[in-house]
Design a protein around this nucleic acid. Structure first.
Length: 466
RNA sequence: GGCGGAGUAGCCAAGUGGUAAGGCGCGGGUUUGCAAAACCUGUAUUCGCGAGUUCGAUUCUCGCCUCCGCCUCCA
């Protein structure tokens, strides 16, 4: 095992495996590094906080593994060719790459603001079309896929007995009758079986110039296949873990398993990690109800990305999270409390924390994280032990937990106070010294009217924005 | 209709077969000219409802109620 340091007494990291439906220990299959794949964003618009719940939890998983002493190889793709990216780029009169690169860059900015570690590899779907064509060819050759009359290629589900294992399709009841009718009416598909899914989509008028040459004619790869091809290239036929939002279990991940196992064999993903969706005010986010928040939306209201992150890790990843403004406020207060408690203690760099060590009174918090990423439990442990943190080990442990959670503490207000404001504040202080309470109160009201509030201390005062 | 998940104090939320972490909010106190801030402190005899198993259940079993999500190339 290529262990880095390991936290003293740290338990091995265990995680709920969506496929096995139980909490299992995570160990790298190659004994070197834990290799995992995350389904990344489709870059056709700004990512919303629901997307980021998934990405942040994946980031926490990686951090917990690394802080626990394990090496990782993290691959997360960018989906930059699919129905939506093509549709919207054509509509805006821009080239696909020009259009998607704008949103990809914005997404990167958001990831950085949320303190998400960069994946080691971030492959773009559009740059791996040859790999995808090669995989489809194999599937056709092996009898797992067929070309339809219009030049599309479909995966033949009946050729893969294992289909449906991840999503328990055997106990599900696919409403095939309904599906078949819809498809028949839509005149869009030409499949042997209604459940067969597309690997290669034949070129259509509305796709514009977005097509590639293939053995089956001009067209473009199907969405499900992109991930399979990139995984094969960067992680191989058998790797440690695959993750994404819970909505991807079926059909996306189910289809990936079918494609990958049928084309190249191997075990594919040994473990599956899915995070539940985020709700806003108790309901599914939606544009129409105005609850589809982006980081930019929340920043306009004064909320920082770190406050958002705190909310996102505030509850169990397997449960739906109800996001509210009140929870953002609670996050702000909690982060401020942590920052205050840690005053005078400098956070070591992330890499230096990976050397392990004795986490002192915060060992329990790390244990919580190691047991199925219990982020809420870990935060509870942190607060419960905050007052008893004394030694160097204790504070190192404190920062190990924060590093595993990916939290950074707010700097003590580095706000610039305008001259006129500080002048009024100074006058108020003078009045107070002279015990001229009437004048003092007038100055205080004046400051409040301009949006500032004074905090008095024993030796002096501080002016902060309201 | 099928599948999955959830119901714990005003809100968010952890957890366990042995009697409820933590955060926000709120109450009280110290401090303050009064506030704010800060600090101290209090805050669920009870874990949706009803049975059952057990010495004992919030935690296990069964039934019921309510809510949410998925089954449309939405993380």
């Amino acid at each position: 095992m290529q262990w880095l340091g390991r936290a003293v007494n740290a338990a091995p990291v265990r995680l709920f495996d969506t496929l096995k439906r139980e909490v299992v220990p995570l160990e790298p299959v190659d004994g070197q590094s834990f290799r995992f794949y995350c389904c990344g964003p489709t870059v056709y618009g700004p990512a919303h906080i629901g997307n980021f719940r998934t990405f942040v939890m994946q980031d926490v998983l990686r951090r917990v593994l690394e802080v626990g002493g394990m090496r990782t190889k993290h691959v997360r793709n960018i989906t930059d060719v699919d129905d939506k990216t093509i549709r919207d780029s054509v509509a805006s009169g821009r080239t696909l790459s020009d259009f998607t690169s704008e949103w990809r860059d914005k997404y990167h900015e958001d990831c950085e603001a949320l303190n998400c570690l960069q994946p080691h590899v971030e492959p773009s779907a559009v740059e791996h079309v040859p790999e995808q064509i090669a995989m489809i060819s194999e599937l056709v050759e092996k009898g797992h896929a067929y070309r339809s009359d219009d030049g599309s290629v479909y995966f033949k589900i009946s050729s893969f007995p294992g289909y449906g294992e991840l999503s328990r399709l055997d106990t599900r009841e696919l409403d095939l009758g309904k599906t078949q009718n819809e498809r028949a009416n839509s005149d869009e598909y030409d499949k042997d079986n209604a459940a067969d899914f597309v690997l290669w989509k034949a070129r259509r008028e509305e796709d514009g110039e977005n097509f590639w040459e293939s053995p089956w004619g001009q067209g473009r790869p199907g969405w499900h296949l992109e991930c399979s091809a990139m995984i094969r290239k960067y992680l191989g036929e058998t790797f440690d873990l695959h993750s994404g939002g819970e909505d991807l279990v079926f059909p996306h991940h189910e289809n990936e398993i079918a494609q990958s196992k049928c084309s190249c064999g191997g075990e594919f993903a040994r473990h599956w990690f899915h995070s539940a969706h985020l709700l806003v005010n108790g309901k599914k986010m939606s544009k129409s109800s105005g609850t589809l928040y982006t980081l930019a939306d929340l920043a306009e209201e004064g909320w920082s990305a770190m406050e958002v992150r705190y909310v996102l890790i505030g509850s169990n990843y397997r449960k739906q999270l109800n996001f509210t403004k009140e929870s953002l406020h609670a996050a702000r207060e909690a982060l401020g409390k942590l920052a205050k408690a840690a005053t005078g203690h400098k956070a070591p760099g992330y890499r230096s924390l990976l050397k392990g060590g004795n986490p002192g009174v915060f060992a329990g918090a790390l244990d919580k994280l190691n047991e199925d990423l219990n982020t809420a439990g870990a935060l509870g442990e942190v607060f419960a032990n905050l007052k008893s943190a004394k030694s160097g080990d204790d504070w190192r442990g404190f920062f190990m937990v924060l590093a595993a959670l990916g939290l950074t503490l707010p700097e003590p207000a580095a706000v610039k106070v305008p001259d006129d404001i500080s002048e009024i504040a100074a006058k108020r202080w003078e009045a107070r010294q002279a015990k001229d309470w009437a004048a003092s109160d007038i100055f205080r009201d004046e400051l409040a009217a301009k949006g500032w509030v004074v905090k008095d201390g024993r030796e002096g005062y501080e002016v902060v924005p309201l």
